[in-house]
Design a protein around this nucleic acid. Sequence first.
RNA 1: GUCCAAGUAGCUCAGCUGGAUAGAGCAACGGCCUUCUAAGCCGUGGGUCCAGGGUUCGAAUCCCUGCUUGGGCACCA
Length: 570
Amino acid sequence: MIYKPIESFSGGYKMTIVEQVKQQLKEEIKAAVIRAGLAAPEQVPDVVLEVPKDKAHGDFAANMAMQLARIAHKAPRKIAEELVAALDKKKGHIRQIAIAGPGFINFFLDNAYLTDLIPTILNAGSDYGASQAGAGKKVLVEFVSANPTGNLHLGHARGAAVGDTLHKLLNKAGYHADAEYYINDGGNQITNLAVSLEARYRQQLGEEAEIPADGYHGKDIIALAKQLVGQYGSTLKEKPDDERLRFFRNFGVEHLMREIRKDLSDFRVVFDNWYSERSLYETHKVEAALDTLKKKGETYEKDNALWLKTTEYGDDKDRVLVKTDGSYTYFTPDISYHKDKFDRGYDQLIDVFGADHHGYVPRLKAAMQSLGYDPDRLTVEIIQLVNLFKDGEKVKMSKRTGKAVTMRELMDDVGVDAARYFFAMRSSDSHLDFDLDLAVSHSNENPVYYVQYAYARITSMLKRAQDFEPAEGEETDLSTLTGEKEIDLLKKLGNFPQVVAESAANLAIQHIPSYLFDLASSLHSFYNAEKVLDETNIPLSKARIALMKAVRITLKNGMDLIGIHAPEKM
RNA sequence: GUCCAAGUAGCUCAGCUGGAUAGAGCAACGGCCUUCUAAGCCGUGGGUCCAGGGUUCGAAUCCCUGCUUGGGCACCA
């Protein structure tokens, strides 16, 4: 992991009450350790406070006594007793302390402070959840970057969902993140595209034409060829060879990129920048990067080719930069592209790659080192393959045979919400079995509806809540929110900024769907147990309405991060 | 062969960077709609955390070995 979760936030950002209380508690524990003489100030380990799974273990639990066992040379439970005796219970809203298990110190807090969260959330609105954990670090997230040689397919969709969410998550957590798509419009594959397209074009005109073995066989190319016939008839055949090739290249790239952009934008994926490989050549950045490597003595010539000494930085073998025919490998412009990212001032680069490219990572990292950069400034997120199941059968994806399920089909079949939720809910480094039949089903088997339903439910309640609206200037008394399910909701609301921050720091987007599911679950449980709009208890109803508004905002903010809609009604 | 991931309930997966009795959803079973949306709630059953060692107060989590699965191993992109 590159990023360390940041314990306390500072600067202009105002901590939520939960963070403040936790912070106070940590400081008090540390102070007590020193007061009790259990360890010297510089010996005290970082205070770890966790929320126990079991409510019987309090609101927070500290494992400090176990951590100190070695330093203090005492039994953990004995240490815990001495530590508790030294604690100032007036600090940190402590109501009760218990020592349990091997030496856990369980804190039971006076949870009245939690209601302060509600005005905080209502005021923050769509900003709730934001923090400055990332301290403005400049990050570039590059993802999808599919070659413009066909339509996007299922694998790209997962990469798009992950990359887009990472991008938004990082920004929410106080990083300065940009999203970028690298357009491979310069290499050999574009020539293959042109040749394949021309073959399809000629076939449309009734000619015999073979698609080269390493060409593109997809039906998207056929569709493009039909379009050409409609637009130009057979006139393209008359053009001289190189002009014709250039035409097919440009036409293919332009049209396929247009479709790619449309697919991505319909999938609610936003890029700040589209970076053309060709532009690297036009601005001579490829030569410049090559020169830098040569001057640093990182290259050598062998067998009429130019090699980069990547083995010096842990790669399996050295890699060719300039082939015997004088052309570049894919690697070469990509090195200059990554150099350019650093030159543009990014502190950290994140590349989202498909699993089939993971062998490329060591060489790319090695190249960064050759250029003099710390390889840890490049993080590669590997997106594992998606296996699609339809009618209980595995659908094998292959671009070559053109049988791939496209991103467009995915959107049409299962919808953007379900697709994006499915992709976001699993950690990206695990294989994903995508059951089309399940995702299509508009039933409770589909977890996305569970979260959306919570939002719709609240919205529906709030529409009926006009009679309970407080008068102008009237303060809602929130101190009545003391029920178990209300406290549970408040605690979860308070966790949101930290969930976002940690999820961003660990590049672990799956925590967001999991948090949303959890919050929705608390909401549903509360909803079934308590009546929000109760004419017989107006003050309590007002407080609960405020709580519902806070939950609604938090749900919405979380759903925004993973790119799913928050429906007003279902 | 070698490198990189992954292996947790019948199925699909979490497990917060080492903590207390390993959790969800689906599937199975039993309850809850004259009351703010039942796409919901409440409850029951379900485990050799792949196997074996090691590290320590403590391991699903970290290290080593093996097994299984997927992927990579181009002067392709």
